[in-house]
Simulated scan of single mutants.
Amino acid sequence: MLNRRHLLGLAAAGIAAPAVVRAQAPWPNRSIRLVAQFPPGGLVDTVARLLVPQMAQALGQSVVVENRAGAGGVIGTDVVAKAAPDGYTLLVSHASVHVYGAATRPSLPFDPVTDFTHMVQLVEAPNIILVRANSPFRTLDDLVSAARTRPVRFGSSGIGSAPHLLGAMLSAEARAPNLDHVPYAGSAPAMQDVMAGNIECMVDPITTNTQQMRDGSLRALAVSSPQRLAMFPNVPTFAELGFPKLTSSQWLGLSAPKGLPQPIVERLTAIVPPILARPELAARFTDLQTMPRNPPPTGEAFVAIMRQEIADWTAVARQFSIVVS
């Protein structure tokens, strides 16, 4: 070790003293931000706020949700893509950006796969097709039969959204060419027009409609999950109605900028699956009708799912010329 006499001697001789090497502080040693790329109150924000107290407890540091909404989730996602890969900026990644955005937006400012470190899939939610309670369409067959001979309008949360693509697939698979898409700026205005009778139906994630389904103001004709949902056992799946290609879901995941150090990746990948399985979170996920897989896909398995879904939905977008400029 260099003492004061050695340092003075080196200085007198005109020789620079070697720099003192400081050990890097262990991660995390300050607050972590978890970016939610959609506004407060939606599914992404809700899931993020369910996770942060559990993550903070497991990591011994505060975790703060930061809402960075805009451009269908692209703005907040881009913030994370361009952040330092130091473990202090994380993202609730969303299939609406990383899959459906990749399939329909030719000019994303990032690569949805390679510009991120994708660690674990959190939850996934199916889509449903809904009509108002007094609709003459009692079944999915009623609806598509009508759409074979006359216009039947379905609303979605926007051009290039998962509901838009699913509705386009239903039109093709059911040979119902008059199932016409009406895009809205979000699910809420589409629901209002369904309730008012301005459009006949809508396709939407089930998470935003459970209350209306419970109180009977909206009726689901089919769900895109592989099996019927325990909370709504009378709603058939698209698959059992003859449309297996419409089995799909929208997932949320935990991601970070590319180049995240492996020790941080390993720690986050280790703590998140047990958090998802905690009874208090499982109960809330059940209420939201958005559940984690068991076990949740992590690392390369998560990325493989993403790549396959991008390929599948890109083919659908091209088939129906769905492009978001």
Score class of each variant (00 low, 15 high):
residue 248 S to H: 14
residue 246 L to F: 00
residue 216 G to I: 11
residue 179 L to Y: 00
residue 167 G to H: 04
residue 157 S to M: 11
residue 148 R to S: 04
residue 210 T to W: 08
residue 192 Q to M: 08
residue 179 L to I: 03
residue 169 M to R: 15
residue 173 E to R: 11
residue 204 D to C: 07
residue 223 V to D: 09
residue 219 R to E: 04
residue 245 K to R: 15
residue 223 V to R: 07
residue 237 T to H: 05
residue 189 P to K: 11
residue 208 T to H: 09
residue 166 L to I: 15
residue 189 P to Q: 09
residue 240 E to F: 01
residue 142 D to R: 00
residue 202 M to T: 12
residue 164 H to W: 08
residue 139 T to P: 00
residue 216 G to T: 10
residue 223 V to I: 15
residue 201 C to D: 12
residue 133 A to P: 00
residue 212 Q to P: 03
residue 137 F to M: 09
residue 170 L to A: 10
residue 200 E to P: 04
residue 138 R to H: 12
residue 169 M to V: 11
residue 167 G to L: 02
residue 163 P to M: 09
residue 175 R to H: 13
residue 131 V to C: 01
residue 208 T to I: 12
residue 176 A to W: 02
residue 225 S to F: 07
residue 228 R to F: 02
residue 232 F to V: 10
residue 232 F to W: 06
residue 132 R to A: 12
residue 168 A to Q: 15
residue 240 E to Y: 02
residue 234 N to V: 04
residue 218 L to T: 08
residue 247 T to G: 00
residue 161 S to H: 01
residue 234 N to I: 01
residue 130 L to V: 14
residue 229 L to G: 07
residue 137 F to P: 00
residue 201 C to Q: 11
residue 178 N to R: 14
residue 179 L to V: 04
residue 187 S to A: 15
residue 238 F to N: 06
residue 147 A to P: 00
residue 173 E to G: 02
residue 152 V to D: 00
residue 180 D to W: 13
residue 204 D to L: 11
residue 155 G to F: 02
residue 221 L to H: 11
residue 168 A to F: 03
residue 193 D to G: 06
residue 159 I to L: 13
residue 213 M to R: 14
residue 163 P to G: 08
residue 175 R to I: 03
residue 161 S to D: 04
residue 203 V to F: 15
residue 197 G to L: 08
residue 135 S to W: 00
residue 130 L to I: 12
residue 142 D to F: 00
residue 159 I to R: 15
residue 197 G to A: 07
residue 174 A to D: 09
residue 235 V to G: 04
residue 229 L to S: 08
residue 215 D to K: 09
residue 188 A to F: 10
residue 245 K to Q: 14
residue 191 M to T: 15
residue 147 A to F: 00
residue 161 S to M: 03
residue 140 L to D: 00
residue 195 M to V: 15
residue 174 A to C: 02
residue 206 I to Q: 13
residue 181 H to K: 04
residue 165 L to V: 07
residue 246 L to A: 07
residue 233 P to S: 12
residue 205 P to N: 14
residue 231 M to G: 07
residue 247 T to R: 09
residue 160 G to C: 02
residue 133 A to I: 03
residue 189 P to H: 07
residue 175 R to N: 14
residue 245 K to Y: 07
residue 178 N to I: 02
residue 167 G to I: 01
residue 227 Q to M: 07
residue 131 V to L: 01
residue 216 G to H: 08
residue 242 G to D: 01
residue 195 M to D: 14
residue 207 T to W: 08
residue 142 D to Y: 00
residue 152 V to Q: 00
residue 165 L to I: 10
residue 148 R to E: 05
residue 239 A to D: 09
residue 158 G to I: 06
residue 172 A to E: 14
residue 227 Q to D: 13
residue 217 S to G: 03
residue 162 A to N: 14
residue 226 P to V: 10
residue 205 P to W: 10
residue 182 V to W: 14
residue 224 S to L: 05
residue 131 V to S: 02
residue 158 G to S: 04
residue 161 S to Q: 06
residue 196 A to I: 06
residue 208 T to S: 15
residue 182 V to N: 06
residue 194 V to D: 02
residue 226 P to G: 09
residue 234 N to W: 06
residue 155 G to I: 03
residue 132 R to I: 04
residue 216 G to A: 10
